[in-house]
Amino acid sequence: MHDDDRPPAFPLTRRDTLRAGSAVAAASVLPPLSSAAASTQSMPLEPGATTTITTVVNGEPITIAVDTRASLLDVLRERLALTGAKKGCDHGQCGACTVHVDGRRVAACLTLAAKVDGREVTTIEGLGEEAALHPMQQAFIDHDALQCGYCTPGQIMAAVACVREGNATSRERIRDAMSGNICRCGAYVGIVAAIEDAAAKMGQG
């Protein structure tokens, strides 16, 4: 978290921070901060509204108190700074948040974080690394199976699972098994080619 070392941003209070006076004037017409604001650092939630979970994320054991309502996706992204899994719909309709729980692909946005207590979570950050890409990652590069890159982590996590499930045995099966991952840029042709390629290299084609 590259900003962690920096001091927190400060409020605009000095007149000289901004040239235009209207912004300062505008700030003054805003009602004062509510009393809740002062106590937000401690995130006061009602008893029972938080749950402590113990989980293994990308091989590392983690114990963390989460809002009981929180999705696994929001906990990964907002609490653990694992932003590889993306939010594209928040309703299990796009696949951008695909991660593995106990080795199986799931939609992290529709998974209550509380549910992964005692389970293992793998995200794109835990799949391969710069020096040793997973064969699926290399195949996505080789076949240009991406454009904007936003759906890509979810596509790759789904694709790895697709191969392990035995669903990468034909283009038809790959297409169907990968239909839970929308690529709005339309890289589907490359994605199918990448999975065929990687499946052979993963020894499960």
Binding site: R77, G84, G128, G149
Partner: peptide, 20 residues
């Protein structure tokens, strides 16, 4: 930027961790 993208590294606007 394909290599960064398959690693899930690019920080899109909502990905930037900011203190507070």
């Amino acid at each position: 930027d394909a290599r960064d993208k398959v690693l899930g590294r690019p920080l899109f606007a909502a990905d930037i961790p900011l203190r507070g």
